Simulated scan of single mutants.
Amino acid sequence: MTTSQPTPLADLFRLDGRVALVTGASSGLGVFFAETLAEAGADVVLGARRVDRLEETKAKVEALGRRAVAVQTDVTRPEDCTAMVAAAMEQLGRVDVLVNNAGIGTAVPATKETPEQFSSVVEINLHGTYWMAQAAARVMQPGSSIVNISSVLGLTTAGLPQAAYSASKAAVIGLTRDLAQQWTGRKGIRVNALAPGWFESEMTDSYQPGYLEQMLQRVPMGRVGDPRELAATLVWLAGPAGGYVTGQTIAVDGGVTIT
């Protein structure tokens, strides 16, 4: 009688032979996510509106020895989401991981925010997350994983007038729970969310002088995060290491949500 050997722990964090989709992959954290998934062994399909910037991310993935496909994608358009998934199936043959990273933020006082300003944030951050998840889930096989990028501002506040952003990111957390209960048992697709705190990105570069230093007083770890710390958590959720985790929101925030 032979007994199967358990999978080595390090192998649980590998994504060899898998195909990952990353939206918002033209800049910021999306680039780190794409590179980290490639380092873990995945081929990567990259989506964003700025196709010229996507080519730069594509080159970084290919430099790691993985295949990459760049698809101009506006996640507010369901047909674009379907086209991105179709490109993955046509060129790489499968979809195993979706990282719903595309998003925007605003800081407009609630008495001055226009319907157009509010709606534009919700369209990308919430509707876009849903349309991409819907398109991917139609082709994903059991064992697949969706990771929605929410924010600590879906769980707490941060001193800026960000009603649209905070509302949309809180809604992503609710969406994550519901999709998990719909798809995990029936389709074998795990759905989780990441709630990042402050990480160096284009968004933090746009903050007013002194704002980030003030907010770091609330962070027990006293610093911004390294994007690779967030990306490493993504790899855990995306692959076999997170195989018993679904419907959860994981805050990677240096502790700000406990203050």
Rank of each mutant, 00 (worst) to 15 (best):
G222M: 10
G222D: 05
V224H: 02
V224E: 06
V224C: 10
V224A: 09
G225C: 10
G225W: 07
G225K: 11
G225F: 07
D226R: 11
D226Q: 13
P227Y: 00
P227D: 03
R228T: 13
R228H: 13
E229G: 02
E229C: 00
L230A: 01
L230P: 02
A231M: 03
A232W: 03
A232C: 05
A232G: 11
A232T: 09
A232Q: 13
T233P: 08
L234Q: 02
V235W: 03
V235G: 02
V235Q: 03
V235M: 03
W236D: 04
W236A: 14
L237E: 02
L237A: 08
A238N: 03
A238W: 02
A238Q: 04
G239V: 06
G239P: 03
P240C: 06
P240G: 05
P240R: 14
P240V: 12
P240I: 10
P240S: 15
P240F: 10
P240W: 07
P240E: 14
A241T: 08
A241K: 10
A241R: 11
A241Y: 08
A241Q: 08
G242C: 04
G243C: 09
G243P: 00
G243A: 14
G243S: 15
G243I: 02
G243N: 12
Y244Q: 00
Y244R: 01
Y244W: 15
Y244D: 00
Y244M: 05
V245C: 05
V245E: 00
V245M: 06
T246H: 10
T246N: 11
G247S: 08
G247W: 02
Q248W: 11
Q248K: 15
T249F: 08
T249W: 06
T249Y: 06
I250C: 09
I250G: 07
A251T: 13
A251S: 15
A251D: 03
A251I: 11
V252S: 08
V252I: 14
V252L: 09
V252T: 11
V252D: 00
V252Q: 06
D253I: 12
D253C: 13
G254M: 07
G254K: 10
G255S: 14
V256F: 06
V256P: 09
V256Q: 07
V256N: 05
T257W: 10
T257H: 10
I258W: 15
I258A: 15
I258P: 04
I258H: 13
I258N: 13
